[in-house]
C-alpha cells in the first residue's frame, strides 16, 4: 500500500527573489534562458532541479558545476533542422520545426530546438521525451562514431 513519506522542505526560496543585480562572471556564451525570472537579478542557474538562484549566490562549487554543465552541453552535436519527417515538433515549446531552425541532437537521437533543450539540460541531463540519461559515457561513444 502506498505511503508517501515526506518532510516539509525548509529551503524557502523567496529571499532569492530579491537578489541584487549581479556582475557577469563568465565571458563565454551564456545559455539562452527562455523563461526569464521576474526579478532583475542576473542570469538564473539551476544547481539542481527545482532550485534556482542567481549567479552571485552560488558557491564556488556550484559555479564549477555550472561551468562543467555548460561545457558538456556545448559538446552535444548541433545542426539545423533539415525537414526530417520523424521529428516534426519540439516537445518543449510545442512548436513545429522550420527548416533551418538551430537544433541539438541528444544521444538517443531525439532533437529539440537548441535554446529549448539547453535550458532543460542546465536542470537535468535527461532527454525529456524518453528520460534517457544524457551522460558522459553516452557522449564519448557518440563522439567516436
Amino acid at each position: 500500500m502506498g505511503n508517501c513519506l515526506k518532510g516539509s522542505s525548509t529551503d524557502d526560496l523567496s529571499p532569492l527573489r530579491n537578489a541584487e543585480t549581479t556582475s557577469e562572471t563568465t565571458t563565454s556564451e551564456q545559455p539562452w534562458i527562455p523563461y526569464r525570472e521576474v526579478n532583475p537579478g542576473g542570469p538564473i542557474f539551476y544547481p539542481s532541479p527545482g532550485i534556482s538562484c542567481s549567479v552571485n549566490q552560488l558557491s564556488e562549487e556550484d559555479q564549477v558545476k555550472i561551468a562543467k554543465k555548460l561545457g558538456f552541453i556545448q559538446h552535444l552535436p548541433t545542426g539545423t533542422y533539415d525537414g526530417c519527417k520523424k521529428n516534426r515538433e519540439c516537445v518543449i515549446c510545442m512548436i513545429e520545426f522550420i527548416v533551418g531552425d538551430p537544433v541539438r541532437y541528444l544521444p538517443c537521437l531525439h532533437i529539440y530546438h537548441k535554446k529549448c533543450i539547453d535550458a532543460w539540460l542546465m536542470r537535468s541531463f535527461t532527454c525529456p521525451s524518453c528520460m534517457e540519461p544524457v551522460d558522459a559515457a553516452l557522449l564519448t561513444s557518440y563522439e567516436t562514431k
Partner: peptide, 28 residues
C-alpha cells in the same frame, strides 16, 4: 486516505511542490 493524512494536512506548505515526497510505491 494516506495513513498520515491528518498530520500532513495540518503541517504542510500550501504549495505541494514544497513537499519533499518520497515515492515509495507506484503500484497503487
Amino acid at each position: 486516505r494516506p495513513p498520515d493524512n491528518t498530520f500532513y494536512v495540518k503541517t504542510c506548505n500550501k504549495n505541494p511542490k514544497k513537499t519533499k515526497w518520497w515515492y515509495h510505491d507506484d503500484s497503487v
